[in-house]
C-alpha cells in the first residue's frame, strides 16, 4: 500500500515536471519594456515643458537625401545643406534652387560672400556658389576632423575637433592662426572635446563663439583669438547643459540670443547672450519620420539661424525644419 502511494506520488511529480517544461516552452515570454530597464530614465529626461515652447514650426522641407550632416543659411536666406557628397540649395518656400556634387563626404558647410566652404574630413574645400571647385586646402592635421566653419569678410575659421583648435585661414587658404590652446597667462581654458562635436559661430559684436563641450560651456573669443569669457553650467535642468559634452550644435540669432542643441536629450533651447534660459524651440517629440534610424541616434544633425530670425534645423530624417518665434 505504501509502495502504491509512493508510486502515485512520484508519477504525479513527474507529470508536474512535464507540465512545467511544456508551459515554459509554449508560454509567451514576459515582455521587456523600455521603462522597466535603464533606471536613469532617458525617456522622461527627453520630455520638455510644452508651455515653454517659444517657437513654432512654419515649414518642413523634405530633402530626399540621406546622410546629410550640415546646414547653413546665407544673407539672402537661401538654405544650404551638405552631406553624402552633395550640396543642396533651397529657397525659403522649400523649392530646390540648386544642387551640385562634390568629391568627398562633407561634414559641415559655411557660405562666404561668393564662396561655399565645406569641411572635407580633415581638410577644407572651397567651391564657388555655382558649384565649381576652387581649391582644396592642405589639412592642418591629417587625422583631424573639421566639424564647423565660420566665415567673416577677412578670414575663415574652422573648428578641428581632433586637434581641439580653431584654425584661422586667410581667404587664399593660408593658415593664419591657431586659436584656443590652453594658456594659463591669458586664462584660456583650452577646449575639451570628448566626442566629435565642436561648433563655432560669429556673434553680434564681430566676436567668435565656440562650444567647449567637455566643460558644457559656450566661450567667447575675439576674432584675433583672445579668450574673453564664457557661460554655461552643467545641469539637467533647463538652465544649462546636460550629458558629458554639450551643446552639440549652436547658432546665434540676429538679436544676439543663442540657439543650442543638446545631443542625448534632443532639446533645442534658446538662451540670452548672458546665458539665461529663455525658451524651447523643439524637443525629441518634434522630429518624426518613417526612415530607418537607430534608437540611440541623435535626432538633430545641425542647425542654423537666418538673418530673418528664423531657426533652421536639419534633422536625422533628412528634413529641414523652419521655426519662427511665436507671436506674443
Amino acid at each position: 500500500m505504501r509502495q502504491k502511494i509512493t508510486i502515485v506520488f512520484s508519477v504525479l511529480l513527474l507529470l508536474l515536471a512535464v507540465f512545467l517544461i511544456a508551459r515554459d516552452l509554449f508560454q509567451k515570454p514576459a515582455a521587456l519594456t523600455n521603462a522597466s530597464c535603464c533606471g536613469d530614465d532617458l525617456v522622461s529626461m527627453k520630455q520638455i515643458d510644452v508651455a515653454l515652447l517659444g517657437y513654432t514650426r512654419t515649414r518642413t522641407i523634405e530633402t530626399g537625401v540621406k546622410g546629410l550632416t550640415g546646414i547653413t543659411v546665407d544673407e539672402n536666406n537661401r538654405i544650404f545643406v551638405c552631406g553624402n557628397r552633395q550640396v543642396l540649395i533651397f529657397d525659403q518656400s522649400g523649392k530646390k534652387s540648386g544642387e551640385f556634387a562634390v568629391d568627398s563626404v562633407t561634414s559641415c558647410i559655411a557660405t562666404g560672400s561668393n564662396e561655399i566652404y565645406l569641411g572635407f574630413g580633415s581638410g577644407i574645400a572651397c567651391y564657388t556658389s555655382a558649384g565649381e571647385k576652387k581649391a582644396l586646402w592642405k589639412p592642418f592635421n591629417k587625422e583631424g576632423l573639421i566639424t564647423s566653419i565660420a566665415v567673416n569678410k577677412d578670414y575663415i575659421y574652422a573648428a578641428d575637433a581632433v586637434s581641439k583648435l580653431i584654425l584661422k585661414y586667410s581667404s587664399d587658404g593660408r593658415l593664419a592662426q591657431e586659436i584656443g590652446k590652453k594658456d594659463t597667462l591669458t586664462g584660456a581654458p583650452g577646449f575639451i572635446i570628448p566626442s566629435l562635436y565642436f561648433d563655432i559661430s560669429f556673434g553680434d559684436f564681430n566676436d567668435l563663439w565656440a562650444v567647449n563641450p567637455g566643460r558644457l560651456r559656450l566661450e567667447n573669443y575675439t576674432i584675433a583669438g583672445h579668450y574673453e569669457a564664457g557661460w554655461g553650467i552643467a545641469t539637467s535642468e533647463n538652465s544649462g547643459f546636460t550629458g558629458c559634452c554639450n551643446p552639440a550644435h549652436f547658432a546665434i540669432l540676429p538679436d544676439g540670443n543663442f540657439v543650442t542643441y543638446e545631443k542625448g536629450v534632443d532639446k533645442i533651447k534658446v538662451f540670452d547672450p548672458t546665458g539665461r534660459f529663455l525658451c524651447f524651440i523643439a524637443g525629441a517629440g518634434s522630429f518624426k519620420g518613417n526612415t530607418d534610424l537607430q534608437l540611440n541616434g541623435n535626432l538633430v544633425k545641425d542647425l542654423a539661424a537666418g538673418s530673418d530670425g528664423f531657426v533652421y534645423v536639419l534633422d536625422a530624417y533628412s528634413q529641414i525644419n523652419i521655426f519662427r518665434k511665436k507671436d506674443r
Binding site: 536613469d40 532617458l42 566626442s195 559634452c245 542625448g264 536629450v265 540611440n296
Partner: peptide
C-alpha cells in the same frame, strides 16, 4: 550587464 551605463554613454558620450 544591465547596460544602464552603456545606454547613457551612448546617448550622451562616445559610446
Amino acid at each position: 550587464g544591465c547596460g544602464k551605463c552603456v545606454k547613457n554613454c551612448g546617448a550622451f558620450g562616445n559610446g
